[in-house]
Design a protein around this nucleic acid. Sequence first.
DNA 1: GCCAACGTTGGC
DNA 2: GCCAACGTTGGC
Length: 154
Amino acid sequence: MPFARIPRSAKFPSMPAPSHWLVKQEPGKYSWEQFLRDKATVWDGVRNYQARNNLRAMEKGDAVLFYRSVVEPAVVGLCRVTREAYADPSAAEGDWSAVDLAPVETFPQAVALSAVKTVKALSQIALLRQSRLSVMPLSALEFKTLLKLGGLPR
DNA sequence: GCCAACGTTGGC
DNA sequence: GCCAACGTTGGC
C-alpha cells in the first residue's frame, strides 16, 4: 500500500521548500566510488523515522550531498534524486521508503567533518547537531557553503 | 577499542 | 506513561 507523501508545506510550514539534502553512508557499506561506478543506486535500508520522513520529502531533481562517515569523515560528492520515495524493497516488514539517486560530481576537495566544524555558516547544520541522523535537509546557505568548500562553486 | 549520544524495547 | 536496559551509530 502506498504511503501518503509528506508535503513540504506541512513538514516545513514556515520555510521555502528545501531542495537540498545530505545523506550519510559508511564506505564499508556503500562507497562514493562504488556509487560512481554504478551510476545510480537505490537509497534503501533507512530504518529511522526521521530519516525516512526526509526521504519522503525529497523531490525528483533535488540536490543531495553524499557524506562519508566513519572512515575519514567528509562530504565527498554531489548527487541528485532521480526517483521519489517508494516502498523500500529491502524492508521485509514495516513502513519504510527508498529513493533513487544518481551521482553528479565528485568534490574536487572533500570537505572533512573537522572543517565543517570550523565554518560559521555551518554551525547549525544537522550533521553536527544530530550526529546519528542519516538523511537530513540542508539550508540553501549550508548547501552553497559546502559546494564552495568542496571546490564546486556555482 | 572506547565511549557518548540517542533510538527502541519492554517491564511495571 | 515512565524509565532502565539494551543496541546502534559514529567520532575519536
